[in-house]
Design a protein around this nucleic acid. Structure first.
Length: 738
DNA sequence: CGCCGATCGCTC
DNA sequence: AGCGATCGGCGC
């Protein structure tokens, strides 16, 4: 950093959290600078947080490493305030720059993901308390005696505690303050999160787990970057294994971040952490209060908080001395941020480890194709747990060929699956019927005129939700009541539901097993986290006989009594245009069938399919994981898609169909046909309508050697600016970083 | 002739 | 991104 120190003042570069890539220059005033503790710093250093004037307002910013480029003394403004105690480390600053450069975002927007409000920079407020001060009051009462006995020993206590312990009203305590017997005082704020103990409760590990744990301990002790893919089947005890890595980092005095998809951040997970380390970790997710998050932010910056368990955004916390990141369920799509700065927190975690020199553990029962390939190529070390813990065997997976075993007309459960559920019920065990589709029916049409209900602002069919008595668009959330007559031809009672959703499966199950306890688990029928937890506990305790669920049930919850998992439509999703369609189907179905017999005996998984020969379905049925990855890698290689190429989706959206199309054609012409750049233009990426806007994705695929970001940046700056309400957004998909 | 609304462009 | 500056609608 070249900081200009003229004879009169110091000029520094400050990155501000606004929509710009460059840092701005500010003058450090000569006089004593305004700080929260009154101390006057002589010089500012990179990483310090400051408050600066910006346009009409003042914002927080960070002194950055850039050379001071703007030296127009007349237009320079003064730094208003410097905050102490929180300095962003050099590695972390490099990380911010790296993300911006890679995701084609402005550095200011990345910094915005890091900084919070001013409260996170100030020391926590001391707590108001009361302590014994003066003589016993002249007028003594029973209640006052009780208060004094509570205060015996002279320790200061919070007023609410005094009231509770002495069983008197608050006004009695106030009276004693007035009489001078008690006086107000301030206690330092207690630590938000207690220190986890590395050896609080050492676990009982299998031989296989112990070998894996040892690898993690060594990687942590080596204190340098390593990518570790912890690939363990469902029920293999991955969590216990990576907890050993966490314990080792604690022994080395390092901070640890455990990232989980938001939905997996349940009380059950935190309980397991507490059982292992004796205390709860810091919890970082959208449900936490602003106050708590500010305290966590400051706590990790000062180093007071050792371990944080958090969702995606926890990656941007300014840890003082991070020594390990664990990304649990690394394949999960929830790690990808789709708005503003588009990034995948799993990949950025690897980058953070690489820049700062510590190991990063990616854990999953179904690793992403990218991570699997990185392990194959030797960029990550693969730590494999092929067996379940405690000698439990993997579920027995079988296909039901629906062409040979069709369900009754208008029904969706094949005779084979119904029989399997019957057997499971008779054995007193739980079944899960899985269908990744909310609502009653995915398509509603009029049997008289053939009218189909379509979303007015998206190019999708409306899904009937019979419990809510509404037609819902799953893309934009538009909903309307189910009309009594067809809006096109006016015919009454002419609407028919086509295809199944979970509600329809629940209806069918209720008619087949009327006396059984059936629970339906679908995100639109669950109101809030609390209800979800209640329902999950109900299932865990074995009170439900049959569970019918969507994606919600595939996400790592434990159901001890679950012995049969029936997949209603294994082919669902395979036909989607998404380049990761096959991978998603494989991961979801492997995870959901992995729920069967996890704790007790031999579980079963049954996959209903009309395409049993499809490589993804066949690999699932045969338990041939390697076969799946081989197939998927071949497909990706041919299309030059991740992990073999870098893929950028240029997302165009416009209110005007013609504007979107013509600008798209312009872009396709502009992309250079060199370095094996491949463009999927408007012809191949059809125009769709989303929330009333015409949009398409222009996919640009390049091999790894080609540096896409600089080219895209240049191109966007040179090409004619989109007119009118045309919006261009860039979504960069990952390759490997190390 | 005047006031509110889309579009433009800057932030040290 | 946000926020002020700037030009255009038509209301009386």
């Amino acid at each position: 950093m070249r900081i200009i120190v003229s004879s009169t003042c110091q000029i520094v570069s400050v990155l501000v959290p606004v929509y710009v890539d460059s840092s701005y220059s500010y003058r450090v005033p000569n006089g004593p600078l305004d700080t929260e503790d009154g101390a006057a710093p002589s010089k500012l250093v990179a990483g310090q947080v400051v408050k600066v004037p910006l346009g009409p307002r003042s914002v927080l910013g960070v002194v950055w490493d850039d050379d001071v480029a703007f030296t127009d003394n007349n237009r320079l403004k003064d730094i208003e305030h410097v905050y102490h105690g929180t300095v962003l480390s050099a590695n972390f600053r490099k990380f911010v720059d790296w993300i911006a450069q890679y995701t084609l975002a402005q550095r200011g927007m990345v910094l915005r993901m890091v900084l919070r409000g001013e409260e996170s920079l100030l020391p926590p407020k001391p707590i108001k308390a009361l302590r014994l001060a003066g003589p016993v009051p002249a007028r003594m009462t029973k209640a006052r005696e009780q208060v004094l006995s509570v205060m015996e020993g002279g320790l200061a206590q919070v007023k609410a505690d005094i009231v509770e312990r002495s069983g008197v009203s608050a006004s009695v305590v106030d009276g004693l303050v007035k009489a001078g017997t008690l006086e107000p005082c301030f206690l330092p704020a207690p630590a938000l999160v207690a220190t986890p103990q590395a050896d609080f409760a050492a676990p009982r590990l299998s031989e296989q787990q112990e070998v894996a744990a040892q690898q993690l301990r060594q990687a942590v002790a080596a204190d340098c970057f390593a990518g570790l893919l912890l690939d363990g089947v469902t029920g293999s005890g991955k969590t216990e294994v990576y907890f050993e890595g966490v314990a080792e980092a604690l022994r080395h005095g390092k901070q640890i971040l455990i990232m989980v998809p938001e939905i997996a951040l349940t009380g059950a997970f935190l309980d397991r952490f507490e059982a292992r380390f004796g205390v709860r970790p810091g919890e970082w997710h959208s449900g936490q209060s602003q106050r708590y998050k500010n305290l966590i932010w400051r706590g990790v910056a000062t180093g007071e908080i050792q371990v944080v368990v958090g969702a995606r955004s926890s990656l941007m916390l300014p840890f003082r001395d991070l020594g390990l990141i664990v990304v649990d369920e690394e394949h999960d799509g929830a790690y990808k941020q789709e708005d503003r700065v588009i990034y995948n927190a799993r990949d950025m975690a690897v980058v953070r480890g690489h820049l700062s020199g510590f190991p990063v553990v990616l854990a999953s029962a179904t690793p992403s194709v990218e991570s699997h390939n990185n392990a194959l190529q030797g960029r990550y070390s693969r730590i494999h747990l092929p067996d379940r813990f405690g000698g439990q065997s993997m579920p027995d997976i079988a296909l039901i060929d629906m062409r040979a075993n069709p369900p009754e007309k208008g029904h969706w459960l094949s005779p084979v699956l119904i029989e399997a559920v019957n057997e499971t019920l008779e054995a007193g065990q739980q079944s899960l019927l899985f269908l990744n589709r909310r609502g009653y029916a995915p398509l509603t049409l009029c049997r008289t005129c053939g009218h189909r209900f379509q979303c007015p602002s998206c190019s999708t069919w409306l899904v009937e939700h019979r419990f809510r008595k509404q037609l819902v668009c799953h893309h934009c959330g538009h909903c309307e009541p189910v009309p009594p007559a067809c809006p096109a031809c006016g015919q009454e009672d002419s609407l028919v539901a086509c295809g199944p959703g979970v509600e329809r499966i629940a209806e069918e199950a209720a008619s087949l097993w009327p006396d059984r306890h059936i629970v339906i688990l679908s995100s639109d029928l669950i109101h809030g986290v609390q209800q979800l937890r209640t329902e999950l506990e109900l299932i865990s305790s074995g009170k439900a006989d049959i569970v019918i669920g969507t994606q919600l049930v595939a996400k790592g919850h434990n159901f001890p009594a679950m012995m049969l998992v029936g997949v209603i439509d294994a082919d669902l999703g395979l036909a989607h245009g998404d380049l990761r369609a096959g991978e998603k189907v494989f991961q979801t179905l492997a995870q959901v069938t992995g729920r069967a017999g996890r704790h007790t005996g031999q579980g079963r998984g049954l996959l209903q399919s009309y395409a049993p020969d499809h490589p993804v379905i066949a690999a699932l049925a045969n338990g041939d994981r390697e076969g799946f990855y081989t197939y998927e890698l071949e497909q990706r290689h041919r299309a030059m898609m991740p992990p073999f190429g870098r893929l950028a989706a240029i997302i165009l959206s416009a209110e005007d169909r013609e504007a979107a199309l013509s600008y798209g054609r312009l872009m396709v012409r502009a992309v250079p046909r060199e370095n094996d750049v491949r463009v999927l233009g408007p012809a191949e990426a059809p125009l769709s309508v989303l929330r009333g806007r015409y949009r398409f994705r222009l996919l640009v695929a390049t091999p790894r050697s080609f540096s896409l970001s600089p080219w895209l940046r240049l191109w966007l700056s040179q090409c004619p600016k989109p007119k009118g309400s045309l919006r261009v957004q860039i979504d960069v998909d990952p390759v490997s970083f190390v």
